[in-house]
Simulated assay, not measured.
Amino acid sequence: MYRSLLVAALCLNLLGCANSHLPAAPRAEEPGATLIGDSSRPPEARWVRTELYLSLGPQRPVERQVSAQRWQAFLDQEITARFPDGFTVLDAYGQWRDRGATEPERLATKVLVILHEDTAARRQDLSAVRLAWKRLTGDLSVLAVSQPAAVSF
């Protein structure tokens, strides 16, 4: 217990040092500080947070996974092309068991998180990304989770 607390404290300290080169954010009472962010993204728009779970392949052997170069090409050609304003990619471990299987599949996974306006065009872009990933990997499905999001810039 003591050891894990010590490790956590050390990590927090290192994170503080790593960010010490960043300029301080303006204080609310300072001139120029505002809660109004990007005026091109009105707060009244309906926003959605969508996560796509993209399997890179089995945890082992690593050679059967989508390579870093193929992933980067897919990211550039399919995702960035459709969502140039931004997104987040998280490295993850995924596990699932198909019906009738005795052992779960253990998968290297990328979780793509996109905050987007709730429009038909954005939904079409998400479907296109999912289809392109299935074509690239031969996967039968790409898990998508969407939920309303309160977004502020």
Rank of each mutant, 00 (worst) to 15 (best):
P31N: 07
R122W: 12
V129H: 00
Q124S: 13
S141Y: 12
A108I: 06
L10V: 12
L22M: 06
K134H: 10
I79D: 00
V129N: 02
E44C: 07
F74G: 01
A25V: 04
Q69P: 06
A24F: 02
Y93M: 07
G57N: 05
T137K: 08
T80L: 08
T109A: 03
D85H: 01
L140G: 15
E51R: 11
F87P: 02
T119M: 00
F153P: 05
A9W: 03
C17S: 05
L5T: 04
S141N: 07
C11E: 10
T137F: 08
S141H: 07
Q147N: 05
E29T: 06
Y93V: 06
W47L: 09
A25C: 10
L112G: 09
W96D: 00
P61D: 05
R64Q: 13
T119D: 09
A45Y: 13
L10S: 13
F153T: 10
T102E: 15
Q77Y: 01
L115S: 04
D98T: 15
R64Y: 02
E30K: 02
L5R: 10
V48P: 05
R123P: 04
P61Q: 07
Q59I: 14
Q65C: 03
E117H: 05
L75W: 04
L75G: 01
R122V: 12
A25I: 04
N13K: 15
S67I: 10
F153G: 06
T88P: 00
C17H: 11
L15Y: 12
D98V: 08
A25R: 01
P26T: 04
L143A: 07
